[in-house]
């Protein structure tokens, strides 16, 4: 059969990058964390910097990121990844350093570390996975939860009068002189995932030039926390998350 001839090494166009280990991801079916990991790993692979990259893992669903990225990794206390990354980058300025953080990690308990690292213009990449919820601990409301959005701690929907408005960390850090490149992307479609990869690659290249903090938000889904199928969660994300968290570059270096 003709098809069998197509499957041969010279025709290979896409396979899992070796910068990801072969461990089976523990994420729920359809969760964007897996695709986000892979886009970042592909960038490390293509830039040939696997041996010079150091990642800092958060607390949250991606706490086990160090099992999956085949680069040097350090686990940080909840929200403290930018402080840990600061220490790593300052002692080893020639390394490529990134943090990988959820919205509970980055925009709640770690708000201070995030803002101050960006304000100091620390020379590393912050990858921010915003799924509007505390996924790991059972779908509690996060600072990023949308107005009216139900979570286990806002069962009637987020009431902004008593619970505050969703925090737009990405717009906030873009205001700080220390940040160099600030963008908001997603990984739920092939086109969006490829755009995210291009953004992550740019960010790593700017890091080489010591231009300041690069901040890549990835608006992502949490099918389990949102209590939806993966397909429903991606549609819901487009219809509800993107109007509040619009995709695109917010700050690009001149």
């Amino acid at each position: 059969m003709a098809e069998n001839n197509i499957i041969s090494p010279e025709n290979l166009v896409y396979e899992k990058t070796s910068v990801l280990t072969d461990r089976v991801l523990h994420y729920c079916p359809g969760c964007g964390h897996g695709t986000a990991h892979r886009m970042l790993a592909e960038v490390v692979d293509e830039l040939g910097i696997q041996g010079d990259t150091i990642g800092v893992a958060p607390v949250g669903c991606s706490v086990l990121a160090y099992y999956y990225f085949d680069v040097d990794m350090q686990e940080a206390a909840h929200g403290r990844a930018p402080a840990v990354a600061t220490g790593i980058k300052r002692t080893m300025p020639e390394k490529y350093v990134f943090t990988y953080q959820g919205d509970g990690d980055l925009a709640a308990i770690g708000t201070a570390e995030t803002l101050h690292a960006c304000n100091r213009g620390e020379n590393f990449l912050i990858v921010f996975i915003n799924n509007g919820i505390y996924g790991m601990t059972g779908g509690q409301m996060a600072p990023t939860t949308l107005p009216g959005m139900k979570s286990s701690t806002s069962p009637y929907g987020r009431d902004v009068v008593t619970m505050g408005n969703p925090l737009k960390m990405t717009e906030l850090v873009a205001e700080l002189p220390g940040t160099c490149f600030v963008t908001r992307q997603s990984v739920h479609t092939p086109a969006n995932a490829r755009k995210t990869k291009r953004a992550l690659k740019k960010a790593m290249e700017y890091q080489k030039q010591n231009k300041g903090t690069c901040f890549v938000e990835i608006v992502s889904n949490c099918p389990s926390g949102w209590k939806m199928t993966p397909a429903e969660s991606n549609k819901w994300m487009e219809e509800n998350m993107f109007p509040y968290y619009p995709l695109g570059d917010i700050k690009v270096p001149s």
Binding site: Y14, H33, P190
Partner: peptide
């Protein structure tokens, strides 16, 4: 079916890196 054109869209969005893609030269 056998309508695959090797565009790799499926593999790019698969969160679990399940799919490997080939395309004839």
């Amino acid at each position: 079916n056998s309508a695959c054109v090797g565009c790799a869209n499926c593999a790019v969005v698969c969160p679990d890196a399940v799919i490997t893609v080939y395309r004839e030269k």
